[in-house]
Design a protein around this nucleic acid. Structure first.
Lengths: 201, 201
DNA sequence: GCTAGACTATGACGGTCGTTATAGCCAGTG
DNA sequence: CACTGGCTATAACGACCGTCATAGTCTAGC
């Protein structure tokens, strides 16, 4: 312990609640939702177990939901800013964020939104964390699509390409973890960048 | 029970060992590796728990490894056949396989190879299941890349596009599960098909 | 100072996990 | 017929899980 968590750093200045959420996002991105226990989440955030149920009375589902939204907002904020310099710059920033997470954690962490997306819902109704994951994907896509439209792409084409970008990046991050190499990220980056350049005039 | 598992059907004609592997692949694709217990795997295959450790003496890791290879071979076999009709036909078959799994299971199942890829390795060395996942991705990519080269693509371009296709499909399946919709698959299919057509002359 | 409410500390509950051990069944071979 | 080896049945092991309850500590406002 102590040398591993770099991607979602838990600065001691933040409140205990924020540290728990950020730590949960990090752990979910590494091991998946089901393998992330509330006990370890609390320990990772140097918070007592009891506090977890104080801050998140609805239990694990609420914590997972907030962790998904936390990461979603983190990425969306950066993406929104970089997209001001155009879709290619936005893509580069998007890829760069994930590359940093994957490399900094020695291919151990990935995307918690993806991790939550591939867990089977229990029985009948859709859990809140899965709904949050869908909303995060939607937001990332719409940010990219808007930028593509602003740079001359047809709306339908822009929507398609935005979906492709998000899906490809998520899949590529997973492939990098399996192969313990950033080569998939390099290849995907090349192809997606060419695709944007071709579409925006 | 009885009306849910359609994607990786467990025909009673197969041996108990095969049923356990196929069932494990299905369960991993739904809930992830860590949330798939050997007990439930055995129950799902109508095999006693003791038999699991008889057939797979190395325990859960061995079962997971074989489940990954099982799915990898299943997809690779179909992909190889359809690619004889060209890369576009291959892409269509690839997408169709995943679409069927996602739709038939009401967005509950996905790709077990992806699920294994995003689980953090325990401590020091890479687990066998993760190595198997990397090999499966590699095989799918090389099948696609070879077909693209055979139809006029430059080797480097072919490799890049093959990686993009595998990554995009894996990511898209996850997005479909989160959104409970096949729209991402439709969009990705459109973009990838256009990409192949543009590259192969 | 004192009290209310936010937070911590601690322990327990029933349950499932991976794995192992042991004893039994039941084909097929000699 | 005995017997051997593949497979089953059953129970147990320590460990961890999500959740809840309860009692204690701390701090802000009166």
């Amino acid at each position: 312990m102590g040398s591993e968590g770099i991607a979602y750093v838990t600065q001691p200045s933040r409140t205990a609640r924020e540290r728990i959420v950020a730590g949960a996002a990090d752990m979910i991105s590494r091991r998946g939702l089901n393998a992330t226990s509330i006990r370890e989440t609390a320990k990772h955030a140097r918070a007592p177990l009891g506090s977890t149920y104080h801050y998140f009375p609805e239990g694990k589902q609420q914590l997972a939901t907030e962790a998904v939204r936390y990461t979603g907002d983190l990425i969306a904020r950066s993406l929104r800013k970089e997209l001001e310099a155009g879709p290619v710059a936005g893509l580069r920033a998007f890829l760069g964020l994930w590359r940093k997470i994957v490399v900094d954690t020695d291919f151990r962490a990935g995307c918690p939104v993806l991790a939550v997306s591939i867990e089977e819902p229990p029985t009948d109704e859709t859990p809140a964390a899965l709904l949050a994951a869908a909303a995060v994907f939607e937001e990332w896509e719409s940010l990219l699509a808007a930028s593509l439209r602003d740079h001359g792409a047809e709306p339908e084409e822009a929507a398609q390409l935005a979906t492709l970008i998000v899906a490809a990046v998520e899949g590529t991050v997973a492939m990098c973890r399996a192969k313990r190499s950033t080569q998939p990220l390099d290849r995907t980056a090349e192809q997606l960048q060419a695709l944007i350049l071709r579409l925006c005039r």
